[in-house]
């Protein structure tokens, strides 16, 4: 499905959703403001993954590495140097974008499952270093109590900052997907061989995609630090990576806002299921099983399919 077709739904849905998001802190308790902040952060993360997964057809199995790297970049700049917080916030996307490019140079030579597995091994390497380097990263304890500037220090302030940054990032990603690059990237997803026959340097585009995905994931990572005030190695553990993939699948990965919805559902479920039972992953596992059996196009995919008969036949195996 092309990006153009979604445009109308976006505007149709966008205005009321925006109004609710803007007015949220006036109407609900701090807990819900925090919850929505977390949804935005996680949704941004999932959307950045989907940039390469759903729109690039790349088996990005270890996306959390970029998220975690962004979070640690901010945390380390703030706690280890005397530099201002904002420098840390800028350092995050630079570090992860660069990491995305470096890992991309190594991985884009391969495709599909091999690509994904090599990425997991590289990502695990990064994780292992973070996990063990107590002196620098805090090891498996992580770093806690990371200060935030006064301007965005309150929960409402952090919320509006998160809202502004994630909406800007989402808009930027949307624009990129509508650009010639985005269109070509989707072409590569559908048919890399055909793209080569058209003179497109497939791997170069995939490399750019990796860099972008890393860049935006780390924005989410830096926002996470803003909201939570802490980092820990689980932020770049591989199980989180697959959880993000689930979010994309749940919302529908051929739709731009699908992962946003998927992330919102997962965050909500985890929060409220977590109140009643410690067996949250059991619930998540069962949800995922049902999803794969009955709803492979995702929730939003199902809604959109009923609105207009589109959805092409999947060809790429």
């Amino acid at each position: 499905m092309g990006m153009e077709k979604e445009h109308r739904h976006l505007i149709f849905l966008g205005i009321p959703v925006m109004a609710v998001l803007l007015l949220l802190p006036l109407g609900v308790s701090r807990f819900y403001v925090y919850l929505v902040s977390l949804m935005l952060v996680t949704g941004l993360l999932a959307t950045s993954l989907n940039l390469v997964l759903g729109f690039g057809g790349m088996y990005q199995f270890h996306h959390a590495v970029f998220y975690g790297t962004g979070a640690y970049a901010l945390a380390l700049v703030v706690t280890k140097t005397g530099w201002p917080w904002w420098i840390g916030f800028l350092a995050a996307p630079i570090c992860s974008g660069a990491l995305g490019l470096i890992m991309g140079v190594i991985t884009v030579r391969l495709s599909k499952l091999y690509f994904g597995m090599l990425q997991i091994s590289l990502g695990s390497l990064v994780w292992a270093i973070v996990f063990r380097w107590y002196a620098f990263t805090g090891g498996d304890d992580g770093i806690h109590g990371i200060p935030v500037p006064d301007l965005i220090g309150s929960s409402t302030g952090a919320y509006y900052f998160t809202l502004a940054v994630s909406l800007t990032a989402l808009f930027a990603m949307y624009r990129i997907l509508c650009s010639p690059f985005g269109r070509t990237f989707q072409g590569i997803r559908d048919n890399p061989e055909r793209c080569r026959a058209l003179g497109i340097h497939v791997q170069r585009h995939q490399l750019v995609g990796e860099g972008l995905a890393g860049f935006f994931a780390s924005v989410a990572g830096a926002l996470f630090v803003t909201v939570e005030g802490s980092v820990f190695p689980d932020l770049l553990f591989w199980t989180l990576s697959l959880e993000i993939v689930i979010m994309c699948l749940l919302g529908g990965w051929f739709i731009f806002l699908g992962p946003m919805l998927g992330a919102a559902i997962i965050v909500t479920l985890r929060t409220f299921v977590g109140i009643y039972t410690e067996y949250w992953t059991l619930v998540l596992g069962i949800v995922l099983m049902l999803l794969i059996f009955f709803l492979p196009e995702g929730a939003l995919g199902l809604v959109l399919r009923h609105r207009e008969p589109a959805a092409g036949s999947g060809k790429e195996a």
Partner: peptide, 30 residues
């Protein structure tokens, strides 16, 4: 061997953009 999830227009447009060397442009709306 076409781009199954894109529209007919987009299918051909990719070829034109590729010839013009525009496919790495991230900023203009296609």
């Amino acid at each position: 061997n076409v781009f199954d999830r894109l529209t007919v227009f987009e299918n051909v447009q990719i070829a034109v953009l590729a010839r013009r060397g525009n496919t790495l442009n991230l900023f203009r709306p296609a």
